[in-house]
Design a protein around this nucleic acid. Structure first.
Length: 76
DNA sequence: ATGAATGAAAA
DNA sequence: TTTTCATTCAT
Protein backbone atom coordinates (compact mmCIF):
# COMPACT_ATOMS: atom_id res chain seq x y z
CA UNK A 1 0.00 0.00 0.00
CA UNK A 2 1.65 3.19 -1.34
CA UNK A 3 1.83 6.59 0.31
CA UNK A 4 -0.50 9.35 -0.84
CA UNK A 5 1.10 11.71 -3.35
CA UNK A 6 1.95 15.24 -2.27
CA UNK A 7 1.05 18.38 -4.21
CA UNK A 8 4.19 18.44 -6.31
CA UNK A 9 3.98 14.77 -7.21
CA UNK A 10 0.39 15.31 -8.30
CA UNK A 11 1.46 18.30 -10.34
CA UNK A 12 4.28 16.37 -11.95
CA UNK A 13 1.98 13.50 -12.89
CA UNK A 14 -0.49 15.95 -14.33
CA UNK A 15 2.11 17.66 -16.52
CA UNK A 16 3.99 14.54 -17.46
CA UNK A 17 2.13 13.79 -20.69
CA UNK A 18 2.27 17.36 -21.93
CA UNK A 19 5.97 17.71 -21.22
CA UNK A 20 6.74 14.32 -22.70
CA UNK A 21 4.91 15.15 -25.91
CA UNK A 22 6.74 18.45 -26.27
CA UNK A 23 10.20 17.04 -25.65
CA UNK A 24 9.45 13.35 -25.92
CA UNK A 25 11.37 12.72 -29.10
CA UNK A 26 14.58 14.07 -27.60
CA UNK A 27 16.73 11.31 -26.16
CA UNK A 28 17.95 13.59 -23.38
CA UNK A 29 14.40 14.09 -22.22
CA UNK A 30 14.25 11.41 -19.60
CA UNK A 31 11.90 11.43 -16.66
CA UNK A 32 14.54 12.98 -14.49
CA UNK A 33 14.73 15.85 -16.98
CA UNK A 34 10.96 16.07 -16.87
CA UNK A 35 11.23 16.39 -13.12
CA UNK A 36 13.53 19.39 -13.53
CA UNK A 37 11.13 21.03 -15.95
CA UNK A 38 8.14 20.27 -13.76
CA UNK A 39 10.04 21.81 -10.88
CA UNK A 40 10.59 25.08 -12.75
CA UNK A 41 6.98 25.16 -13.87
CA UNK A 42 5.97 24.50 -10.29
CA UNK A 43 8.04 27.38 -8.90
CA UNK A 44 6.72 29.71 -11.58
CA UNK A 45 3.17 28.48 -11.29
CA UNK A 46 0.23 30.67 -10.40
CA UNK A 47 -0.38 30.50 -6.63
CA UNK A 48 -4.01 29.62 -7.32
CA UNK A 49 -2.93 26.59 -9.30
CA UNK A 50 -0.58 25.60 -6.53
CA UNK A 51 -3.43 26.00 -4.09
CA UNK A 52 -5.59 23.78 -6.26
CA UNK A 53 -2.99 21.03 -6.18
CA UNK A 54 -2.53 21.49 -2.46
CA UNK A 55 -6.26 20.95 -2.07
CA UNK A 56 -6.10 17.89 -4.30
CA UNK A 57 -3.30 16.54 -2.15
CA UNK A 58 -5.47 16.98 0.92
CA UNK A 59 -8.32 15.23 -0.80
CA UNK A 60 -6.01 12.40 -1.76
CA UNK A 61 -4.73 12.22 1.78
CA UNK A 62 -8.21 11.94 3.26
CA UNK A 63 -9.24 9.43 0.62
CA UNK A 64 -6.21 7.38 1.57
CA UNK A 65 -7.18 7.48 5.21
CA UNK A 66 -10.70 6.30 4.37
CA UNK A 67 -9.59 3.39 2.22
CA UNK A 68 -6.67 2.38 4.40
CA UNK A 69 -7.60 3.27 7.98
CA UNK A 70 -4.71 1.42 9.56
CA UNK A 71 -1.92 2.33 7.14
CA UNK A 72 1.29 3.57 8.71
CA UNK A 73 4.23 5.11 6.86
CA UNK A 74 7.23 3.10 7.99
CA UNK A 75 10.55 4.27 6.49
CA UNK A 76 13.37 1.77 6.84
C1' DA B 1 17.91 -0.11 -9.32
C1' DT B 2 18.80 4.87 -10.78
C1' DG B 3 17.87 9.53 -11.58
C1' DA B 4 15.33 14.17 -10.75
C1' DA B 5 12.15 17.15 -8.28
C1' DT B 6 8.99 18.68 -3.63
C1' DG B 7 6.87 17.70 0.48
C1' DA B 8 4.65 14.73 4.33
C1' DA B 9 5.77 12.05 7.88
C1' DA B 10 8.87 9.43 10.61
C1' DA B 11 13.18 8.91 13.07
C1' DT C 1 17.17 18.29 11.43
C1' DT C 2 17.81 14.45 8.35
C1' DT C 3 15.96 10.44 5.87
C1' DT C 4 12.45 7.89 3.43
C1' DC C 5 9.11 7.43 -0.16
C1' DA C 6 5.47 8.89 -2.91
C1' DT C 7 5.23 9.78 -9.34
C1' DT C 8 7.35 8.59 -13.93
C1' DC C 9 9.82 5.30 -17.17
C1' DA C 10 13.95 5.02 -20.27
C1' DT C 11 18.51 3.23 -18.97
Amino acid sequence: IPRPSNSFILYRSHQHSAIASLYGHLPAMSNSAISKIASMMWQAEDPRVKARFAAKAEQTKLEHLMRHPDYKFKPK
